[in-house]
């Protein structure tokens, strides 16, 4: 995995609660056997009209948000299925940071496995951020994982976020989880030798 670096981008807002993984990547696209190529199906049912033309009302399709690397949503983002195709689609599309007030557990874990930073802000901060973006056609922000901050490049408004030290370091260094666990081989074998009945 690539180490996570500072990201400067505008923020694409999706003012919806409980965005589930069926919306992030509808099931008809889960049949690929690779990890890549899911980006074009991200939010498919919202992004495209019935005749498969782009839904121009949907924020991802608005010219200004086309290249956004940061996604802003509300609570319980990523609820529903465990499909890792959801973060694969977000990453493949170009999102590297998600900001929400809460996430479903499995989705939250899946993000870290794929170098996506899921930031948690308090509900009032999320409200503030939505307002800031709404009222401004220029919303360049800098996400600095090292310093755990989101900074507006326009007016220097700053948000600080909390993050588990362990997860932060893994993202910053791009550490492979499996290699990390395999260093405990001796302890795992000891455990296995002590199993009585399973």
């Amino acid at each position: 995995m690539k180490p996570f670096e500072k990201i400067t981008s505008n923020i694409c807002p999706l003012d919806i609660s409980n965005i589930d993984t069926d919306q992030i990547i509808p099931k008809q696209f889960l049949k690929r056997v690779e990890r890549t190529g899911f980006g074009k199906y991200l939010f498919y049912d919202w992004r495209y009209n019935k005749d498969k033309t782009e839904n121009t009302d949907f924020n991802l399709n608005k010219p200004y948000f086309k290249n956004a690397k940061i996604l802003l949503a509300r609570e319980n983002f990523g609820c529903g299925s465990s499909r890792e195709h959801a973060p694969w689609a977000l990453k493949d599309y170009g999102f590297e940071v998600i900001i929400a007030s809460s996430y479903a557990d499995i989705f939250y874990n899946n993000c870290f496995q794929n170098g996506i930073l899921p930031i948690i802000l308090q509900k009032d901060e999320i409200n503030k951020l939505f307002k800031l973006i709404e009222n401004s056609s220029e919303n360049e922000y800098e996400v600095d994982l090292e310093n755990q901050s989101i900074l507006s490049l326009k007016d220097n408004t700053k948000f600080i976020f909390n993050l588990d030290k362990n997860r932060k370091e893994k993202l910053l260094k791009g550490i492979d989880d499996i290699g990390y666990t395999l260093q405990f081989e001796k302890s795992i074998v000891e455990y296995e030798n002590s199993i009585e009945f399973f």
Binding site: S82, N114, I188
Partner: peptide
């Protein structure tokens, strides 16, 4: 439930 990266993790480490 776990994601696919964790599936790989369990396949490789059982942990």
């Amino acid at each position: 439930g776990i994601g696919t990266s964790e599936v790989e993790h369990v396949l490789a480490t059982q942990c």
